[in-house]
Design a protein around this nucleic acid. Sequence first.
DNA 1: AGTACGCCCTGGCCGC
DNA 2: TGCGGCCAGGGCGTAC
Length: 274
Amino acid sequence: MPELPEVETIKQDLAKKILGKRITQIDIGPPRIIRKQGSAREIKQAAEGRLIKNVARRGKFLLFHLDSENTMVLHLGMTGQLLFFSSETPPAHDKHTHVIFRFDDGSMLFFRDIRKFGQLFIVPRNRLNKELDLGPEPLSSSFQKRHLTYIMSRTTGIKQLLLDQKRLAGIGNIYADEVLFDACIHPLRPANSLTEQEIEHLFVSLQTVLREAIELRGTSISDYIDVSGKKGQMQNKHRVYQKTGEPCPRCSAAVQRIKVAGRGTHFCPNCQRI
DNA sequence: AGTACGCCCTGGCCGC
DNA sequence: TGCGGCCAGGGCGTAC
């Protein structure tokens, strides 16, 4: 599932490929990738003929700033993929390809999404923050420990809080488990029960785990691939996610799996005490 | 306002 | 071998 590191990898690759190009045509298939925020016609109307001025990321959202007052926003959901094809490489387009962006140099961008949890919509740039309604970026240079302390000042379980995009942007199920393991914090701990040292540790773990994941170009467990179709390597560095029963790399205790907020949650019962 | 839960969707896996 | 049933989960709508 694409989380912050995967979307960041896609963003960086995509910027090199489509920055400054003009969208000549957008073909949108029948599935409801389009949902509420605007019909297919509205998206075509707003984006066709426009230049890609910038490719950015906010949380798990990809942002395509157009040469107008609008930004085209894409969320990859659980199984979304963006595949770039230069004009020389004829693409293999299948039943899971829901949107095709064509550019003025003949290149194309395919949006595939098996489970159709993805979203595509247009937002006027001045309403973007309000529409997305996201917490701070954990890797932003302006994100400081005191911000994390503030986020943690509630009784909600720590994992549930990390997954709440309104509190902190970009963390999904995989990195929530990996970050909490790195910080030696039990996923069910009430957020406001963390000590100063634990918040410090969590703050550092957020940076290290997410940065390493970006360096390794993300986690490819189920469907994630980059814009060239290549897998990331971070799954090889996972220490607890989907390692139920395997020895903890720190203490060799068996990794446990529980359900938290409806999500499979993996942790070391010895290193991460309640 | 905060929280809990069902729903969307498909492929993969399990058991019979 | 085939097939029904269940599971994975990000985000949103609904209920409390």
